[in-house]
Design a protein around this nucleic acid. Structure first.
Lengths: 180, 180
DNA sequence: AAGCTTTTTTAACAATTGTTATCGTCTGCT
DNA sequence: AGCAGACGATAACAATTGTTAAAAAAGCTT
């Protein structure tokens, strides 16, 4: 659960002078579950996922693509440990900004602070929507919903990540896909 | 998903002069899914639940008890439709405050605004924790977790509400309870 | 191109849950 | 007190998913 893949680049363009660009290979951990987030990421090229550890197996909770801003904002802003890990799926080009630079910028801009609050309400709603869709639908329905609404995820992401994202095993997802 | 049942009464005591007390019988709808929340509630006596409609059947998403503040704060603050319904389970005595009064108070207090933002981060974390516990655990595990951490819910709330809260049918919950 | 790793599919079996329906029990109401 | 509706337990069957294992397919690296 992180930001939605909107055109955050415009919204956050005020930070551009403070960005540091990094390039990372696939499967690079950018933030580890349990650690405090000190960096915020904006994806220039590639894709990321967030996941939580469950008895050694990981459960993917969200995917992020080009133009997306990714951070454990709750952790980044409150200095509490992040509940999830952020990891690259593909080789990525990423813009990063430090907690310090971010908060300095925040200090000088009421509008920015307001827009963060606005952003928080949106995230709250978004999180609820995702959760409620979980409560309402079967794995099969969630897969079909994903296929209809985010086909790029199905096309681009390895299936076992999608399986855990849907809350099922990769075996079960394979069955669902070949069911009809 | 709304506030946690903390001692919000202290935190929000600034609103006391603006409260209107109401008494409602059990099964009273205080906010309807799809409508914009114009009132915030603080429970003096009794308990409430929030639920979402799923093809005619309802799914309980949260329970609230004495001392708890309840609102669809995302809706209340942004004027977007609430994703869930708020309903009394028992006869209740409730303190209410209107959106207008709340926001007027907010205008005059930076600390209050800050504490709302703080509150939002907490909710974000809390929501994630609930969601992740859903992803990680089986219904049986969630039931046992609930029994260990919130026994008052098990004791006080009708089982079919708890069943849908756990994401299962009341039949299945009955089986789980009588399994050992 | 060969070889290794990762990913996906398939199969068989166990376990859990949903569905439907029935039957007591309890509760609140008039 | 009596009645109606709500609530919980149980049973039987269907459907889905998890688990484990093996094999096929795809992707990378050298």
């Amino acid at each position: 659960m992180s930001k939605k893949p909107e055109t955050n680049t415009d919204k956050w363009s005020i930070f551009k002078p403070l960005f540091t660009q990094i390039e990372v290979p696939a499967k690079t951990i950018l933030l580890e579950e349990g650690k405090v987030s000190k960096t915020m990421f904006f994806i220039e090229k590639g894709c990321l996922r967030t996941w939580i550890n469950n008895n050694g197996k990981d459960i993917t909770t969200q995917f992020f693509f080009e133009g997306g801003g990714v951070s454990s904002i709750e952790s980044f802003m409150t200095n509490k440990p992040s509940l999830y890990t952020i990891e690259s799926i593909e080789p990525c080009i990423i813009q990063t900004i430090t907690q310090k630079d971010f908060q300095d910028t925040l200090k000088n801009s009421t509008e920015l602070r307001d827009s963060i609050v606005e952003h928080l309400y949106m995230r709250l709603l978004k999180n609820q929507q995702i959760f409620f869709s979980y409560l309402k639908n079967t794995p099969q329905q969630r897969y079909e919903e994903l296929l209809a609404q985010n086909p790029e995820i199905i096309q681009r992401i390895p299936q076992h990540y999608i399986a855990s994202y849907l809350g099922i095993t990769s075996v079960s997802l394979s069955r669902i896909r070949n069911r009809r």
